[in-house]
């Protein structure tokens, strides 16, 4: 056999093996493919509907005022139902960011601490008890947490701290943290558990204590996984609606302290969507808020996805 010198002797030859599928088999495969693609289709549909309904705010029907992009993104005035209406989302976006970051200041350390406890310290019996507890905590309906915020922390803050209202950033952050801590903890635990035993053994063998091993070896080795966990917790808090609706207070303003009330994106949507006529500028403005929320959470998810891939590659 002679081969031209440019083709290495080992170059793949022959025919690709294709499993020959009968028509039934192909049909079955196609069916399952369609199921999988439909999940993707939903994501596309959601995007399309949000954006097209939101577009109505900026490219309105004849007779309605076209809201300038600058007004929508930068104005602090959200007066959707006034005669001279104003659709500025800035105060609402800031409200969302305020409660989200305040909650992550609690949920981050707590969730990571819990993850470390579950992955590195807890004995098997403790884990067997605590892991389902964390999962159940994640399953508590948010309306119940919001309700708890209204009947416990709010009167407490109003009564004992002498605040005008107990429905504020702090109350909201506390209950958002209760909600997102389990997310951070269980994802964080996965990341910490993925650190190989051999690495830990190496650290112990050099005379490190448990905490030194955790702090200097295990946490650095799983840092991107832990960041993914915190970011996804952040995403969950940012998208949460009912807790925020019930305990954030609902004033569309820039908060100056933890005790000010705010009106985040999600609660605006939930509170106002029911009262607005389909097709009105207000309706389109709410979809535009939904679009901002969608993009913010999408960005967080993609960041987490990217970090997660990075994390898998490195371990």
């Amino acid at each position: 056999m002679t081969l031209s010198p440019s083709v290495p002797a080992d170059a793949p030859r022959g025919e690709l093996l294709h499993p020959k599928l009968s028509p039934t088999e192909q049909g079955v495969r196609l069916f399952f493919l369609l199921c999988a693609v439909s999940a993707l289709g939903q994501m596309l549909l959601i995007t399309i509907f949000l954006f097209s309904e939101a577009a109505g705010l900026f490219l309105p029907a004849p007779g309605d005022r076209a809201v300038p992009l600058a007004e929508f993104f930068f104005s602090l005035d959200w007066f959707p139902t006034y005669p001279d209406s104003s659709f500025g989302s800035a105060a609402l976006v800031i409200g969302s960011l305020a409660v989200t970051f305040a909650s992550v200041l609690l949920a981050g350390p707590l969730g990571v601490g819990l993850a470390v406890y579950l992955a590195c310290l807890a004995g098997p019996r403790m884990r067997e008890f605590l892991k389902p507890a964390v999962e159940l905590l994640a399953a508590i309906p948010s309306v119940i947490l919001g309700f708890l915020g209204m009947v416990t922390l709010a009167p407490f803050m109003q009564g004992y701290l002498g605040l005008p209202t107990g429905l504020n950033v702090l109350n909201c952050a506390v209950f958002l943290a209760v909600m997102s801590t389990p997310t951070v903890a269980s994802l964080g635990e996965d990341a910490l558990s993925a650190v190989p035993q051999s690495v830990k053994d190496a650290s112990y063998a050099l005379g490190a204590t448990r905490w030194e091993t955790i702090w200097r070896v295990i946490i650095p080795a799983s840092l991107s996984g832990l960041s993914t966990a915190v970011i996804l917790g952040l995403g969950r808090a940012m998208g949460e609606t009912v807790v925020v609706l019930m305990v954030a207070g609902g004033a569309a303003q820039i908060p100056h302290s933890l005790f000010d009330s705010v009106r985040p994106l999600t609660s605006t949507l939930a509170a106002e969507m029911g009262e607005t006529a389909a097709g009105s500028p207000h309706y389109h403005a709410l979809f535009a808020l939904g679009m901002i929320l969608f993009l913010l959470t999408l960005a967080l998810n993609l960041a987490a996805f990217w970090l997660g891939r990075h994390f898998r590659k490195n371990s």
């Binding site: 999940a39 959601i46 996804l232 609606t241 709410l286 929320l293 996805f305």
Partner: peptide, 23 residues
Amino acid sequence: IRLGVLNLSGVPSVVFGLFGLAL
């Protein structure tokens, strides 16, 4: 598809509500 499913799980529930309302 995986990225789609993953992101779908991160979409806030109120956005699903909006989508359900519109669709």
